[in-house]
Structures are given as structure tokens and as C-alpha cells.
């Protein structure tokens, strides 16, 4: 009984679907695709920004810097900087920053300047992403 009922509605759906058609996209669909293709081509022709320091170089710099830090923390202060002491007899090492007159700022001011600089940097990154998207570079 159940099987014959199943068959009946399956037949009904087969019959109903014979009369249906796929949906119609807009009349200018093909033109829109071709225009989008053209826009993509133009966007890819725009010179892409190339960072002066490549990602690989940054990775190498990072590894070297971390290596130096690790090495310094392992060897500690006992390292004898022979070459440095020998050099000091020829060159007079002075810290140029000592002569610089730094403004006397309160901690709160230093924090606000720091935060301001941080948000400016953050904004640059966001703006770059927005413009990349607008130009179709992403």
C-alpha cells in the first residue's frame, strides 16, 4: 500500500517537473558578465604595489634578530667584548642621544601619543585594504 502510494506521488512529481523550466536570469546577463570580465582585466593591468622589503626578507631579519636575542640571553653578561674594547681606543664612543633635549612629558601624554600613532598605523592598513578592494586588486 505504502509502496504504491510512494509511486503515485513520484509519478505526480515527474509529471509536474516536466512542465517546469529553469529560472531566467536578467535579459542583460551576458553583457554584465562580459563587462565584469573587462573590469577584471583592467584591474589586473593596474600596477600592483610591491613592498620594498619582501616578506622573505622580513622573515630572514626576524630569524636573525631572534637568533641574536637567544644567543645574548644564553651567553649573558659574561661575554667579553674584546673587539669592542680594542675599538674604543681608536674611536671615542659617545651616545648621541645623551645630548638630545627630550621634552619632559608625563606618562599619560606619552601613552596618548603612543595610542595616536598606533591608530594612525591601523587606519593606513584599513585604507589600503579598502582601496585594494575598490580597485579589484584583492
Amino acid at each position: 500500500m505504502k509502496a504504491s502510494e510512494d509511486k503515485s506521488w513520484e509519478r505526480f512529481i515527474d509529471k509536474a517537473m516536466q512542465e517546469a523550466n529553469p529560472e531566467e536570469p536578467g535579459i542583460d546577463f551576458t553583457e554584465k558578465v562580459l563587462a565584469a570580465l573587462e573590469t577584471k582585466r583592467e584591474a589586473s593591468a593596474v600596477t600592483r604595489y610591491k613592498a620594498p622589503i619582501s616578506r622573505l626578507t622580513w622573515v630572514v631579519i626576524g630569524i636573525v634578530f631572534s637568533g641574536v636575542l637567544v644567543w645574548a640571553s644564553i651567553t649573558g653578561t659574561s661575554t667579553q667584548w674584546d673587539w669592542a674594547s680594542r675599538m674604543s681606543s681608536f674611536i671615542n664612543f659617545t651616545n648621541p642621544l645623551e645630548r638630545m633635549a627630550l621634552p619632559d612629558l608625563e606618562y599619560s601624554s606619552i601613552y596618548s601619543i603612543g595610542f595616536f600613532a598606533f591608530f594612525v598605523l591601523l587606519q593606513i592598513l584599513f585604507m589600503k585594504r579598502i582601496f585594494d578592494r575598490r580597485l579589484g586588486l584583492q
Binding site: 529560472e23 531566467e24 536570469p25 551576458t30
Partner: peptide
């Protein structure tokens, strides 16, 4: 050839 079905 395929726009109707892709759109559907």
C-alpha cells in the same frame, strides 16, 4: 548555453 541552469 548554461546561464539558466547556473542561475537556477
Amino acid at each position: 548555453q548554461y546561464k539558466h541552469m547556473v542561475y537556477t
